[in-house]
Amino acid sequence: MNDSIKVFAPATVANVACGFDIFGFAVDNPGDELVLRKTDLKGVKINKIEGDEGRLPLDASKNTAGIAIIKFLEAIGAESQGFEMDLKKLMPLGSGLGSSAASSVAGVFAANELLGRPLAQKDLLPFAMEGEFIACGSAHADNVGPSLMGGFTVIRSYDPLDIIQLRTPKELYATIVHPHIEVNTKDARNILKREISLKKTITQMGNVAGLVAGLMLPDYDLISRSLVDVIIEPVRAILIPQFDVVKNAALENGALGCSISGSGPSMFALSKDFDTAQKVGRAMQEGFSKVGIDSDCYVSGINQAGPVVIG
């Protein structure tokens, strides 16, 4: 059995318009890379973190990858096993792409692999969620779920935890544009209203059901009609300059729908072929560049693999 492993865990799009805290899907890039090694010393040590501009803690108990491994070792009764890790962030922090989730997933997935897979992959989810809790104060699973399991996931319930993977059309592509601004996840949560009207609730429930049906049938027109968020997007959109311009650009260039990725500032669009997804990305970036905001663009199918061993 190996004493060292290198893994990749993918970025994710959470909420997916109408599915606040219950929908998420994984993408091929960006993501996080993590090297984990067994040691003879008890505890988890983080040697270095690259790509974070020195902002992430090296204290494992305060780091999303570190705490996920610590909780995992406690659960399987292996607290005496020591690990050291090198983490490479291949996506910006505070981007709305599940940066903290990818680190959590990479850590616990790597530890489980090195110890001979004592737990099934889906059973690693609660430990990855511990990382989300220390990152933003909420142990939500709409990023860690798809990053760990791959594909498009639905969080049906948190108590008890119940996650479903949905089939997605092979021709469905995601465009993600990350403007070079930052939205703090805690801030994006704090501005949300605590109560919503019955009318908006019913509308949102219809869109949630419609999106699930549209993905499974598959029915692209139904997907398009359902990618509408009447509750969260109208509030969070004010945090993203040019939001309406960028969204309209995506729709005018053939996107099925466009909304905020997670808590933002990244925006995503879904399209029914690769060429359209690329065209949509160029139009979205142009929308940001009109006001001098640089951005990164990623085009990907729905990543069905989740975390993978790369060395």
Rank of each mutant, 00 (worst) to 15 (best):
E113M: 14
H140F: 09
D142F: 07
T153Y: 02
S138F: 02
R117V: 10
A128F: 03
A111L: 07
P126Y: 02
A139K: 15
A111C: 06
N143S: 15
R117Q: 04
G145C: 10
T153K: 11
A141R: 04
F152A: 01
E132L: 02
C136E: 07
A128Q: 01
G145V: 14
G150L: 03
H140M: 11
M129P: 08
F127G: 02
G131V: 09
L125R: 02
E113G: 08
A110R: 09
F152S: 01
L125A: 03
A120R: 15
A135L: 10
N112F: 07
L148D: 01
G107M: 13
I134T: 00
D142V: 13
R117H: 03
S147M: 07
L148Y: 01
F127L: 01
M149Q: 14
C136G: 12
F133Q: 13
P118D: 07
E130N: 05
A128M: 03
V108Y: 06
K122T: 09
G145Y: 06
H140E: 05
T153C: 15
A106T: 12
G137H: 06
A111W: 05
R117P: 00
C136W: 03
V108A: 08
A110N: 13
N143T: 15
A135R: 09
M149C: 14
L124F: 08
R117F: 07
N143I: 15
A139G: 15
V144C: 14
L148A: 01
G131E: 05
L115Q: 07
G107K: 12
D142A: 12
C136A: 14
V144K: 09
A141T: 07
N143A: 15
G145S: 14
V108P: 04
P126G: 02
G116R: 10
L124S: 04
F109S: 02
A135C: 08
G116N: 13
G150I: 03
M149W: 12
L119C: 09
K122D: 12
E132W: 01
S147H: 05
D142L: 11
E130A: 12
D123T: 00
F127R: 04
M149G: 10
P118R: 08
T153D: 03
A110T: 13
A120K: 15
N143M: 14
S147Y: 07
L124K: 04
F127D: 02
L125E: 01
G107S: 14
L114S: 11
G150D: 01
G116M: 11
L148P: 00
N112M: 09
P126K: 00
A141F: 08
L124H: 04
I134E: 00
S138V: 10
L114C: 13
L148R: 01
A128K: 00
N112G: 07
P118C: 11
E132P: 02
L114T: 11
L124E: 04
I134V: 05
E113P: 09
F152Q: 00
I134D: 00
L114M: 14
C136S: 15
G131T: 08
T153H: 04
F109R: 01
G131W: 06
N143Q: 15
E113Q: 15
E113N: 11
L119E: 05
A141L: 09
G107A: 15
E130Q: 11
A141P: 06
F109G: 02
P146T: 10
K122P: 04
E130V: 05
A141K: 04
V108N: 06
P146M: 07
D123M: 00
G151V: 03
N143G: 15
E113C: 12
D142C: 14
